[in-house]
Design a protein around this nucleic acid. Sequence first.
DNA 1: TCTGGGGTCCTAGGACCC
DNA 2: TCTGGGGTCCTAGGACCC
Length: 420
Amino acid sequence: MFALIDCNNFYASCERLFRPELVSQAIVVLSNNDGCVIARSNEAKAIGIPMGAAAFEYDAIFKKNNVYVFSANFALYGDMSKRVMDVLSDFSPDMEIYSIDEAFLKLKGYDRYNMEEFGKQIYQKVIQWTGIPVSVGIASTKALAKVANRIAKKYPQQTKNVFVMDTDVKRIKALRWLKVEDIWGIGRQHAKKLNSINIKTAYDFTQVDNAWIKKNLAIVGLRLKLDLMGIATLDLEQIREKKIIATTRSFDINYKEFHELEERVVSFAVYCAEKLRKQNSCCNSLLVYIHSNRYRQDLPQYSRSITIKLPYPTNSSIEISKFASQGLKYIFKAGYQYKKAGVIIMDFIPKSEVQLTFFENSNPRHVLLMKAMDKLNTNFGQQKIKLGSQDIKRVWKMKQEKLSPRYTTKLNDIITIHVN
DNA sequence: TCTGGGGTCCTAGGACCC
DNA sequence: TCTGGGGTCCTAGGACCC
């Protein structure tokens, strides 16, 4: 059996933790730059605020309904996530952290356990130790555990936040209930295709001909079908090193000048390089892209990317940002207003396996320099030491008008309790 | 005025090899 | 008139996830 534990409205629940007066209030959390809604409490969902809603378009609705609005506080969410995962790891030696708010547990050798009870223990311990409410779905495959979890979340009263799908009768009933577009792994395009051949429910999907699925949804779709039939084809994924590392941002204003964009791109490259050094790798290529504001159809649009093969593998901020800047020079076109840019690094090899090339190699002195930079930035705050081509005077800031304190990760932000 | 960010996997098709 | 066959590797683009 597999269990899927998913935190309920995770970011909204985190914001509530140290603000108990917000329990049962409508809460939304906004994306970077306070752009759009990325999390909603149940009360906010009930008002009809959709996922991804543009914040400025919903301002009036927020006000009218007394919705509490928060800027994304990833320091808080990341730390709370770690705590939840710590608790979950007690329940099985085989765990996959699937996302910031979800984990699969593999329950091998748990035959004698009462799964219903086991699920309730998980719920109980997580809420008691972290304050975060979760839903637990237990079934014979990962895809079915996802379905079970959805039922637990949808019917918290009846299920008491735990749903165990342990018979075929329950499986079929659940699949008949689940709309095809709500299946894990079926997105908008696939749902459209399936609807076009009159497939409406997850159960219908399990009846579709294998060849059709393979042709239209590829091998991934076929695995999914089998998993939903109770034939386990998806196993826990091991933690691996990342295959790409990206830093991309939308800007609060439109940039017109090359040097403005260059500063951003260099900084993005520096962030990427930092993350790369943390996983002890070097990269062999990078991609730079720029984009005008796609929502402003009244303005001329331009977007372009370039992939650069590096002459040698490196994880030096100086070198990576130099190549990123060269790439930008190549794709930049004057006369447009740029709203977004990004740097993505890829083709990693472990630092220890870097082969020297005949003609040009990463500057060996950078290794020590980067080590010193990383150490200083770790001890004295991120971005204390920057490259000269980065923004030195002005700390580039994104819009975060409703940021909550970093209750659990910053000493000054710890709550004060008054005891009478 | 204002619309997120960071990932994974798969496939088709082109370039190349002998 | 007429032009092979069997591969591998790489990349761009599309689909999905949270």
